[in-house]
């Protein structure tokens, strides 16, 4: 029977682990907000005036409230920096993220809300598919370590890691859309013949348009995961329990999946969690190359028209997703593998 004191100390460890995690992500969140707050205020020139000028050029008269809103997001020379900071934080939590110049007079929050589903659907699905392919290739290469399959897959995966992924997207467009005419060049759906909504026409059109971007993201995201899983697999195969399993006369198939892969896959889950966190902000340039109506394309438009409020909003949403997903993954990992709770 476990003594009560030992049980209490174990519970205390657990508590400490969760408190540490919560504390760390709170600090990271505050840091992200502070960076967002500080960048426009540290830059040369006056982003507020240039933004107001551009708003005025687009939409005529500027209401005093609009000016105040812009100032609270980007900086104000009149009030002190501390009160500005609290005003800024308040605005963030109440959803006052400012007005977009590019999509004037739409609120930044509305712009982001319209682009988010596209990105989450495209990159989210691709990330999940990519994970399965990565693991299968990694298991196969690690199992037949040093053989032909491994000698082809590993170097190719290494090279693909260092290829700029937006360039790969360009090649895909050139090959599949331009030369072979299999897929459409750009966009998220056929805007000429279908209107967005829950109809089969729209969904099938959107799926068709998502094929090529998905393929590009898939290919460029495979490399690191394949190498990682392959190395873990090789590592696990040298463990004593594999030898025991072989000595017992278990079938190679059972050893491969039930003994080796099952244990080697653990670190991949944490990698998978990280890539889920990067769903929103991880494929910005690929989306841009395909003019896919998601976060990436919106960020490019914000950059091109110096739409600081929108840019900041996008950065905030990307960062918050990463933080939240990483937080959940860390907690889950602590449950799946209790050793991490103590080591940390």
């Amino acid at each position: 029977m476990a003594s009560p004191t030992r049980k209490a100390s174990w519970g205390g460890n657990k508590m400490k682990f969760y408190l540490r995690k919560i504390g760390f992500y709170l600090v990271a969140f505050v840091a992200a907000i502070t960076i967002n707050f500080a960048i426009p205020r540290m830059m040369p020139g006056n982003p507020v005036d240039s933004l107001i000028d551009r708003l005025a050029a687009k939409g005529g008269a500027i209401a005093p409230e609009t000016r105040a809103a812009v100032q609270s997001m980007l900086g104000d020379t009149q009030t002190g920096i501390v009160s500005q900071y609290f005003e800024y934080v308040k605005n963030i939590f109440t959803g006052h993220w400012g007005v977009s110049v590019t999509f004037f007079p739409t609120q930044v929050t509305e712009c982001i809300a319209s682009a988010l589903p596209w990105t989450v659907a495209l990159v989210g699905c691709t990330t999940v598919i990519s994970f399965f392919i990565q693991q299968l290739l990694g298991i196969a290469a690690g199992w037949r370590h040093g053989r032909l399959f491994d000698n082809i897959v590993s170097p190719v995966a290494t090279v693909f890691q260092s290829v700029p992924y937006f360039w790969l997207a360009l090649i895909f467009i050139w090959l599949f859309a331009k030369t072979l005419n299999i897929f459409p060049l750009s966009g998220g759906y056929d805007y000429r013949s279908v209107t967005p909504g829950f109809s089969w026409d729209f969904i099938s059109s959107a799926l068709y348009y998502a094929c090529l971007p998905a393929l590009a993201i898939l290919v460029s995201s495979l490399g690191a995961g394949v190498i990682g899983m392959r190395n873990m697999m090789v590592s696990t195969l040298s463990e004593d329990y594999i030898t025991t399993a072989e000595a017992k006369g278990l079938s190679p198939r059972r050893i491969k999946y039930g003994y080796a892969a099952r244990n080697a896959i653990l670190p991949s889950f944490s990698g998978f969690g990280t890539s889920l966190g990067h769903v929103v902000g991880g494929s910005l340039l690929t989306e841009q190359v395909f003019s896919y109506p998601g976060i990436g394309q919106m960020m490019l438009q914000a950059v091109q028209s110096n739409d600081y409020a929108l840019l900041q909003g996008l950065f905030l949403i990307i960062t918050v997703t990463v933080l939240v997903v990483n937080f959940i993954v860390d907690l889950l990992y602590g449950l799946v593998d209790p050793r991490t709770r103590i080591q940390d």
């Binding site: 990271a28 426009p40 830059m43 840019l311 996008l314 990307i318 960062t319 990483n326």
Partner: peptide
């Protein structure tokens, strides 16, 4: 260590884009 870990968890490319976009 805290600063390092915070910098690691904040997405790099979006951050550089935001900073670079504000410097003409």
């Amino acid at each position: 260590a805290l600063i390092t870990n915070v910098m690691l968890v904040i997405p790099g490319l979006p951050l550089t884009i935001v900073i670079a976009a504000m410097i003409p």
